[in-house]
Design a protein around this nucleic acid. Structure first.
Lengths: 139, 139
DNA sequence: CTGCGTGCAAATGGTTTGCACTACG
DNA sequence: CGTAGTGCAAACCATTTGCACGCAG
């Protein structure tokens, strides 16, 4: 994603284009493994040494507000920011703490059909997410 | 669960029996909706005014260590403690913040079979949890 | 020029920790 | 009795907030 595309993206969402916002946007797309706020701050510091972490949090919130990102809460309670917007599940590696997205329409269909037949008492399902935990094989 | 059963349970797990531990154990079984540490502290204060919250956290950790409880981290980042030990999923009500357990062997079987056929690249699955979000119907 | 965005530093809040004291076994 | 458990208060740490200043539109 180029800088001008990012600027376009921000404008579309009626967000003022500031160097900080652009830098944060770039960082998230560069670090495309669900970075934490800390990851983002560190990544930005390389190119843009002057950015305050309060701002990073505020910008991230504004991105979430505008649906450019999703906030994901992890096992150990730190937020991660996810730029994949379509519905997807998460694969979580217990050893390396890595999170990968997992999209599987077939699986979604199976689960969806299952719950079509089998209702849960007095509950209206809006969304189902899987968390698949395990380890990456280091072949 | 009676007090003597609780004491038995603690002994089985080689945990010293103290009034604090018994009180916390009781509270968790009374508040059987995945209480937070805060819920537990408030509940205990009614009968046992003198208990420090540091202790509550330590006791909860020791219970988790001994597999008497499971720690669950929720959307908004607070820990909840869950005394259901068998594998289960969670139903999360977006309106009331309520969490219910959901056990469904048939569903587990379907998902398990699905992943038997369809492997995920270089990943060994240890555990799959569903988070079912939605709202309880207020008939 | 007007107000949104930024930087800074202080506040927050759930959880953890260190240490002296207590009481279980 | 000795050691694990407790109470207390201070520390932690990711995140949030308040406010004065700066820059985008």
């Amino acid at each position: 994603m180029t800088t001008s595309e990012i600027i376009e993206r921000l404008k579309q969402n009626k967000l003022r284009v500031t160097p900080q916002r652009v830098a944060i946007f770039e960082a998230i797309y560069k670090l495309n493994n669900h970075p934490t706020a800390e990851n983002i701050i560190n990544n930005i510091k390389n190119n843009h040494p002057y950015i305050s972490q309060g701002t990073v949090y505020k910008v991230l919130d504004s991105f979430v507000e505008s649906n450019l990102l999703k906030k994901v809460k992890t096992e150990n309670g730190v937020m991660r920011y996810d730029h994949v917007l379509s519905a997807h599940h998460h694969i979580y590696c217990q050893e390396t703490d890595r999170i990968e997205d997992y999209v599987d329409d077939e699986l979604d269909k199976i689960i969806h059909q299952y719950f079509k037949k089998k209702k849960i008492n007095n509950f209206q399902i809006k969304d189902i997410k899987l968390q698949i935990s395990g380890t990456f094989k280091t072949k």
